[in-house]
Each structure stands twice: as C-alpha cells, then as structure tokens.
Amino acid sequence: MNTKPYTNEYHPALDKYIHLVPDGNLVDILEEQQKNSILMLQDLSEQQAEFKYAEGKWSIKTVAGHIADVERLWNYRILRIARGDARELPGYDRDIFAVSASFDKLPLVNILEDFTAVRQSTITLIKNLEEEAFLRLGLFNDHPLSARAAAFVIAGHEAHHRKIIQMKYLSQLTIE
C-alpha cells in the first residue's frame, strides 16, 4: 500500500499523524520503524527507561507501552472496517490505559518484545488485506474512517512518539 488516505477518509484530528508518514510502501515503513525504535531503546538501562523529562509526564517505558497499546486499538479498528463492520468505533482514555498498565513495573525488554509482537501483527494484517478492504469505511468520532487511514495512523502515531522520545527524553539522558 503506497497511497496515503484522502482527508475525507478520517477525522481531521488524525491529520497530525498521517502527515508524519513518509511516502513509500506502508509495510516497508512499518518494518523500518520497528527496527529503528528497537535500536533506539534496547540499550537503555531500567533506570534510564523510567526517566520522565518533567513532573507529570510518562516514562520512556510508559511511552513505549502506550505505542503498543494504541497500535492494538488501531489494528482492531482496521480489522472491523476491513471486514465490513462499519458501526461506530469507540475511542479510549489514554491516561486510564497508561496508569492501569503499570509499564514502569515491567522490564524494558518485555515492553519491547510486546511492541515487536504487536507490530508484526500489524504488518501481517496489512499485508493480507486486499486493496478493496483498505478503502472500506467505518465510523470513528462521528467521521468516516477508512482501514487505510487507520493503518497510516499507526505509523504516524509511532513516528510522533519516537520524535518525542528523541527530543525530550534521550536528549537529557547520558547513554553509556
């Protein structure tokens, strides 16, 4: 899949994620993101992975866990839409998810393994959908949502958070 979704395929608030996805094959982009994210985080100590750049902000572990959780939610939306179940898709509360997940109690390696498993699931889901399925529409936040747009949101959401990790977290850490 190489074509970005049109703006009539998604809620305007999702544009900030979709525009972060570079041109190219989405599966290739997702695979490259996975590799880069793992390389960026795998050598952090547990203490470094629990770093928060400001009071009230999430740790690196929580951000990484959040990326996997959100990707799971978007995979569910892709699956529902692609399979023709166009009923209204629910949102979620990211802060409830983050607190309930207790990512800081998990070893970083477990969080990265989970991200890898979720990303592989995303890739196989996308690879196995026909073009017609990507163009199907569901309803999300009272706006149309195509399976294609949902897939691009996954890549854009990860890019958004990777940039934040690089700029606001890793820039303040001394990586040994």
Rank of each mutant, 00 (worst) to 15 (best):
T3G: 04
T3A: 13
K4Q: 04
Y6S: 10
E9G: 03
D15I: 03
K16W: 08
Y17V: 00
Y17K: 11
V27H: 02
I29W: 08
Q33S: 07
K35A: 09
S37E: 12
M40E: 05
M40I: 00
E46F: 08
Q47M: 08
Q48H: 09
A49F: 01
K52N: 08
Y53N: 08
Y53W: 11
A54S: 12
K57V: 02
A64K: 00
D69K: 03
D69V: 04
E71I: 02
E71K: 08
R72H: 01
N75E: 13
Y76C: 07
R77S: 08
I78T: 06
R80Q: 15
I81S: 11
R87Y: 07
G91Y: 04
D93N: 15
R94V: 14
A98N: 12
F103Y: 15
P107S: 02
L112Y: 01
E113L: 03
F115C: 11
T116W: 02
A117D: 13
V118A: 12
R119T: 07
T122W: 04
I123T: 08
I126E: 14
K127W: 03
L135F: 13
R136C: 02
D142W: 06
S146P: 00
A147I: 00
A149R: 05
A150L: 00
A151L: 01
F152H: 15
I154H: 11
G156A: 08
R162T: 00
K163Y: 10
I164T: 13
I164Q: 13
Q166I: 04
M167T: 14
K168E: 15
Y169W: 08
Y169T: 11
Q172P: 01
Q172R: 14
